[in-house]
Simulated scan of single mutants.
Amino acid sequence: MTEVQIRGLSKRYGRRTVVDGLTFDVPAGAVTGFLGPNGAGKTTTLRMLVGLVRPSAGEALIDGQKYQQLAHPRRTVGALLEASGFHPGRSGRDHLRILADAANLPAQRVDAVLDEVGLVEAAGSRVRTYSLGMRQRLGLAGALLGDPGLLVLDEPANGLDPAGMAWLRALLRRRAAENRTVLISSHVLAEIAQTADRIIIVHNGQLNHIGPVEPDLERTFLKVTGAGHAG
């Protein structure tokens, strides 16, 4: 069981504040949707959580520890923040083998995650031939390699067709049912409404709303962010 604790988290770039004093928890056994307009600070928050960006203030903790302090990061956290960073000349299977070897993970996990994300038939093909949706699935396979207790995903449905989105929804719900933790940032409110148990909405880098998913998520989002008054 892995939980996330965000405490007074801030990030400034010069005079610009991107994340401003965020404090919230992400519990195990649930899918938590992390929402906000473009530029709200969502991706920066997730990048601080997984140690890619240094906070200006506050802490992003995973079971009370910073990502850099985790004894086995890939066994604890699986992250997909962008479906890129693939060598176009490598096969999907070789890409995952390299990740598994670097993290000291069992080689058999490669075939297991290829099967889980539906890429067995394409595993021997070079990544340059993959569609955007296939690259997204390969990124998810990388996140799942360590069979982690926490998944941190930024726009994971990007490039997926309706069948792929239904598959992703089932995957995330299954992880939550296993008492794991899922934190997912997305602009697709209809998908979050079907997938998430609870939502966190940020706007201008600040926490604006936290609670269970409500029947009319779009209305809640527009009301909280003030977007419904635009135009």
Score class of each variant (00 low, 15 high):
residue 1 M to K: 14
residue 2 T to P: 00
residue 3 E to R: 14
residue 3 E to N: 05
residue 6 I to G: 06
residue 8 G to I: 05
residue 8 G to H: 15
residue 11 K to F: 12
residue 12 R to Q: 15
residue 13 Y to M: 08
residue 13 Y to Q: 04
residue 13 Y to R: 03
residue 16 R to G: 01
residue 17 T to L: 12
residue 19 V to D: 01
residue 21 G to N: 07
residue 21 G to C: 07
residue 22 L to H: 12
residue 22 L to A: 10
residue 22 L to D: 00
residue 31 V to R: 11
residue 33 G to S: 12
residue 35 L to V: 08
residue 37 P to V: 00
residue 38 N to M: 08
residue 41 G to S: 12
residue 43 T to H: 00
residue 44 T to H: 01
residue 46 L to F: 10
residue 47 R to P: 02
residue 48 M to H: 00
residue 48 M to R: 00
residue 49 L to Y: 07
residue 51 G to V: 13
residue 51 G to W: 09
residue 51 G to C: 13
residue 53 V to P: 00
residue 53 V to D: 07
residue 55 P to W: 10
residue 59 E to W: 11
residue 61 L to A: 08
residue 62 I to S: 05
residue 63 D to I: 13
residue 66 K to V: 13
residue 67 Y to C: 15
residue 68 Q to F: 09
residue 69 Q to D: 15
residue 72 H to D: 15
residue 73 P to V: 06
residue 75 R to Y: 04
residue 76 T to S: 14
residue 79 A to V: 14
residue 80 L to H: 09
residue 84 S to Y: 14
residue 87 H to L: 14
residue 88 P to S: 04
residue 96 L to K: 03
residue 96 L to R: 03
residue 99 L to V: 14
residue 99 L to D: 11
residue 104 N to H: 13
residue 106 P to N: 06
residue 106 P to D: 04
residue 106 P to V: 07
residue 106 P to C: 09
residue 107 A to H: 09
residue 108 Q to A: 14
residue 110 V to A: 03
residue 112 A to C: 03
residue 113 V to S: 08
residue 113 V to A: 09
residue 117 V to I: 13
residue 117 V to P: 09
residue 118 G to F: 01
residue 123 A to I: 08
residue 125 S to C: 03
residue 128 R to E: 05
residue 130 Y to E: 02
residue 132 L to M: 15
residue 139 G to V: 04
residue 142 G to E: 11
residue 142 G to R: 14
residue 147 D to A: 13
residue 148 P to A: 06
residue 148 P to G: 05
residue 149 G to P: 01
residue 150 L to V: 13
residue 153 L to A: 13
residue 153 L to G: 15
residue 153 L to C: 14
residue 154 D to A: 07
residue 154 D to E: 04
residue 156 P to R: 00
residue 158 N to P: 06
residue 158 N to G: 07
residue 159 G to Q: 07
residue 164 G to F: 02
residue 166 A to V: 02
residue 166 A to G: 01
residue 166 A to F: 02
residue 168 L to I: 10
residue 171 L to T: 11
residue 174 R to D: 15
residue 175 R to H: 10
residue 177 A to R: 07
residue 179 N to K: 11
residue 182 V to S: 04
residue 184 I to K: 05
residue 184 I to E: 08
residue 187 H to Y: 03
residue 190 A to Q: 13
residue 190 A to L: 10
residue 191 E to A: 08
residue 193 A to G: 11
residue 193 A to Y: 01
residue 196 A to C: 12
residue 197 D to E: 11
residue 197 D to C: 03
residue 199 I to T: 15
residue 202 V to F: 10
residue 204 N to P: 02
residue 207 L to P: 13
residue 208 N to R: 13
residue 209 H to G: 03
residue 210 I to Y: 04
residue 210 I to N: 04
residue 215 P to E: 05
residue 217 L to P: 11
residue 220 T to E: 01
residue 224 V to Y: 06
residue 226 G to W: 08
residue 230 A to R: 00
residue 231 G to Q: 05
residue 231 G to E: 02
